[in-house]
Amino acid sequence: MSRKEWPLWEIFIRGQHGLNHRHVGSLHAPDAEMAIRNARDVYTRRKEGVSIWVVRSADITASAPSEKGPMFDPAESKVYRHPTFFDIPDEVGHM
């Protein structure tokens, strides 16, 4: 068994100019620079990206799955946040 495992990194890739970076997966690497090099080979072999971000998995704080209800359900009753909540007469034209 190796003395210490390389840490895990989460990989984010910007697919095209103008888009957000998106999480694509993870990989092991000794440091951030190597994580970027490895991410190039593992996740962009077919030109899937124009930019790579790497973040140590241990540095990510996630919302708890058990709190999904209290976290997200309150938005459910606020239907007026959507434009379709309001009836605008056809005569008014496009709005």
């Binding site: 003395r3 210490k4 000794p30 440091d31 190597m34």
Partner: peptide, 16 residues
Amino acid sequence: GRWFREGLMAYAEKSA
């Protein structure tokens, strides 16, 4: 490959 994995890890720790 062990020496290589460990070497890179030691380098990463040292530079950190």
